[in-house]
Amino acid sequence: MDKKQTLYSILDLALVSKDHSLKQTYNNALELARQAEIFGYTRYWLAEHHNSANIGSSATSVLIGYVAQGTNTLRIGSGGIMLPNHSPLIVAEQFGTLGSLYPNRIDLGLGRAPGTDRETAQAIRLDFMEAAHSFPNELEKIQTYFSTDNATSKVRATVAEGVEVPVYILGSSTDSAHLAAKKGLPYAFASHFATTHLWDALAIYRKEFKPSSVLQKPYVIAGVNIIIANTDEEAQRLSTSLIRMIVGIFTGKRDFVQPAIDMTDELKEVMQNPQVHQMLKYSFIGSKATVKAQVKEFMNQTQADELIAVTNIYDIKDRIQSYKLFAEIMKELN
């Protein structure tokens, strides 16, 4: 029996590094995607976040178009569009348009979190909480707008009808696992930060999965933090940018991604903080050999069909090098 191939992909937040302009940040995102294409990655997804100075992927569909335009074969998509922020009709029109411009290359990953704080969520959409609760219905509307059966309806997303844009359900708790299983859709779990519910969510999804017209058996994508360098010490040094970013999240002092510094006792202590330690549980940091052993174990445990890697590093050259080494690891493990 052939060993299952595990695909590997990238999740990007278009992080804004200190002393970098937004234009530089977007150019770096495109450069990373171009390199990912060469390295054999399957897809490159952009997340949706709002009101965060260090995250550039707010207008997610616009950025997807920019990256798709500059690449040739890589699948480009959303990881994800936070559906309660948007009208399903508008999302269908945007992604239908993208799907026509870049045929068979656009993915629509959908989540139900706001991707921001409460005040900003309300500024985006007053009925946010209501929309979040009706996520299953909103998802259904999107599927309807993409269907050719909707051609006789009064309300249509004409640019989406019959356009091939696969839908993925994103989750960071067990709620979306039930929905993805019920709808027979692929499921992407945010284990790069939401580590506590990973095993329950995967068990629910696989147990309750109902085959659909798009998927015959469960398909799991699992998020991992990856920082790889030539030595363990160098990778630890690069990881100081990520650790300081997480400190910013916990203290409410979000800032641009800071340059790497030598690992300090203070930062080592932060890593041992129970909350931080739990959040970074599936963070694989080190040399290629070190990370390869950790990734192999994670793949064996989760049996994920695909890993989607998040690499929060200050410098684009170091980021690209880390993704290059991760691609080498995945090829070797496959």
Rank of each mutant, 00 (worst) to 15 (best):
M1T: 09
D2V: 07
D2P: 07
Q5K: 13
Q5T: 08
Q5Y: 06
T6K: 03
L7F: 09
S9I: 12
I10L: 05
D12H: 02
L13S: 08
L13K: 02
A14H: 02
A14K: 02
L15G: 07
V16M: 07
V16C: 08
D19P: 02
H20W: 02
S21L: 11
K23R: 12
K23A: 14
K23W: 11
T25Q: 14
T25A: 12
T25R: 11
T25W: 10
N27D: 12
N27L: 15
A29N: 03
L30M: 09
L30A: 12
E31A: 15
A33V: 05
A33D: 04
A33M: 03
A33W: 05
R34W: 03
R34F: 06
Q35A: 15
A36Y: 10
E37N: 05
E37C: 10
E37L: 10
F39R: 08
F39V: 11
F39I: 10
G40H: 06
G40L: 08
Y41N: 14
T42A: 11
Y44L: 00
W45G: 12
W45I: 06
L46N: 01
H49A: 07
H50D: 09
N51D: 13
A53V: 15
I55Q: 03
G56C: 03
G56E: 02
G56T: 00
S57K: 06
T60M: 07
T60V: 15
T60G: 01
S61D: 13
S61G: 12
S61W: 10
